[in-house]
Design a protein around this nucleic acid. Sequence first.
DNA 1: AATTCGGGGGC
DNA 2: GCCCCAGAATT
Length: 305
Amino acid sequence: MPWRKTKDAYSIWVSEVMLQQTQVSVVIPYYERWMTRFPSVGSLASASEEEVLQLWQGLGYYRRAKSLLSGAQYVLERGMPSDISGWRKVPGIGAYSAGAIASIAQELPVALVDGNVERVYARLLGDDSVGPKLTKAAWGWAEANICSEHPGDWNQGLMELGATVCTPKDPKCSGCPLQLECKGFLRGLVSELPAPSPKELVRDLTITFLILHHGGSLFFSRAKQGQWWSGMLVLPTPEDVPVAGWTEDLGRFVFRVTNNRVKAEVKLIRLETAPQGFEEVPLERLQDVPIPAPHRKALKLLQRI
DNA sequence: AATTCGGGGGC
DNA sequence: GCCCCAGAATT
């Protein structure tokens, strides 16, 4: 992992934010591009949100990118935090990320709990708690077992154990250094732990994406605050386009936004004149503009025509 | 404590 | 399909 080659706090910070709810293999190319374009806090702090979102495109949870930008501005003004409570005040940095940056980059003796550590804890201690209770118990355990000599290595080792040995499915107990002190293993409960939290109900809904085409350009809306992908360019919906004229059905597909299963219907509208109140993007500039993945998928239906 | 934030990987 | 991912902010 490229962020392992450095102890620069900003680099670790960027990597940890990208890694929130995102797999290592997905993050690596984004991280490389990001560090090339924004090698320092100062270079990020002076960037536009547009460009930040463009580099983030495809990673999801776009709030993280906006927080990272405002966090850089915050740190540029007030200086790099030097303890965990300082990191907790930085936008976009919660308990896990603060612990990760402080212990890995600054070698401060602090704990950290992510999904990996939580799973290792639940099995090692045989704790069948669920949800927030389990998380809280894992924090208590992690804080009681901080390695004050090498806190960063310890924390990364714990996470790596969870990622490579104590995996969610098919854990490699026979190769685990903790096998003989693991209560979950000794009791034959490894496959039952951590206890699954109750499933969230999935909502089904349908939206229509309209592709407004005129004169070699497409016309987008800007997602408002409180809407999905707020601040980004998104395809208009019928509410945005009162008078539709005739539409051409381009197809449909399904995507998910956390616990929503969304059926998207895509329609093309060829306009005689440029519409008012939309942002125009020439077809050849589509690559340079941040657009959420589902909208980009909808645009692909256009290429078949 | 529960919800809301994307998107992709792996099986 | 389904589960999970080196979570955080908001209510």
